[in-house]
Design a binder for these strands. Structure first.
Lengths: 133, 133
DNA sequence: ATTTAAATTGTTATAATATAACACTATGTA
DNA sequence: TACATAGTGTTATATTATAACAATTTAAAT
């Protein structure tokens, strides 16, 4: 017993789909994932969506909401899908996960007018990446 | 000539759809909007989506990306759909536009690791509203 | 006033994204 | 073993969104 929280051992489908997304240089859409894993025996949308749901839940991947696409988590500070921030290039669609202690601290401590705090958030910045400017 | 920026006079379809969203206490989904405006002669999804696109573009409404739903803008400080922030209750799905000078200033000035600034962003906070706690 | 460009409309069809329902299988654990 | 929980495979369907094209309206610029 050495870890605080359970290590999620991925199931076969979850592992196949995670590996694909993790290798991809850009966010992947569900049906593109489906197309790419059909040779591995995953034939139906639901098999993909179920794996995606679980992978999002345990924080291995994130959904880019404005793009309906999924990206592997490369940010140790996003505590299990609770707090995510991305930059998105509006020309080339490159997406980068933002890893800023300052930003996550600011947002984690943000209180609205009623004094309410929110432990979970998703932030998407839009602009032009270096290449596209 | 008294205003700096053009006043967008809404077209008939845009006005019908904006009025509906503006009256709604909660974000509305496209096909729910369609159902509600069919009696006014708007019969096809595209007519709805085109009006929605335009209303989003001119900042009269915002899209709640995580919900695929649309809400009227009640925040004078969101400069034409460029910078939006919402709180979303995960139980009752109540959505509130956040109007915080501090937050918008912080995000407008946020620079990533490469020193890049993003003028446009969308932030969605999740939690439980007062009623649901 | 007439022309022209730009935006909007109406329409049919279809693409893309996502879930319901059900029977079955694997896995962990009491 | 038996029980609960999570995952699988499958078919069907629901939900969200856009393509393509012809017609019409609007704005503004001669």
């Amino acid at each position: 017993m050495k870890t605080m929280h359970k290590e999620h051992t991925l199931t076969k489908n979850q592992q196949i789909i995670f590996d694909l997304i993790d290798k991809s240089p850009e966010p992947m859409k569900a049906y593109s994932i489906l197309f790419n894993v059909q040779k591995k025996g995953i034939k139906a949308p639901l098999q993909v969506y179920r794996a995606l749901d679980k992978l999002v839940e345990i924080g291995k991947i994130h959904k880019i909401e404005s793009r309906n696409a999924f990206i592997a988590c490369h940010n140790s500070s996003c505590r299990v899908a609770k707090a995510t921030a991305f930059s998105i290039c509006e020309i080339c669609e490159k997406v980068t996960e933002i890893s800023s202690a300052g930003l996550s601290k600011y947002l984690a401590n943000f209180k609205d007018k009623d004094g309410m705090k929110y432990s979970k958030y998703n932030l998407e910045f839009f602009g032009l990446c270096k290449k596209c400017r």
